[in-house]
């Protein structure tokens, strides 16, 4: 969990490089990322965690904060195990 947090923060840090953001900050609502980030995040999660982000996963509650993304990965990897 802690490792996932650091790894995802590092990925997100590429896009949000000039401000600090909290683990529970809504990065979409605060306008910290643009629309291209959304697809790059999907590709990152799929490549680095071996999961497939599917139709039914498209819920901003899965992606809006760093904590939400970590939880989403945990759920997806458990479901795949």
């Amino acid at each position: 969990m802690e490792n996932n947090n650091a790894k995802i923060r590092e990925f997100m840090g590429q896009f949000i490089s000039n401000v600090d953001f909290a683990d529970d900050e809504d990065i979409f609502a605060s306008g910290l990322v643009n629309s291209l980030f959304a697809m790059q995040l999907v590709l990152f999660l799929e490549k680095d965690y071996g999961i497939t982000v599917e139709n039914e996963d498209l819920d901003y509650d899965n992606f809006r904060t760093l904590n939400a993304i970590v939880d989403f990965i945990e759920r997806k990897t458990k479901a795949a195990a």
């Binding site: 291209l36 959304a38 697809m39 999907v42 139709n55 498209l58 901003y60």
Partner: peptide, 12 residues
């Protein structure tokens, strides 16, 4: 996709 994902994900 789902409501709200038409531009960022589907069109993306």
């Amino acid at each position: 996709g789902r409501i709200g994902f038409g531009f960022t994900h589907v069109a993306g």
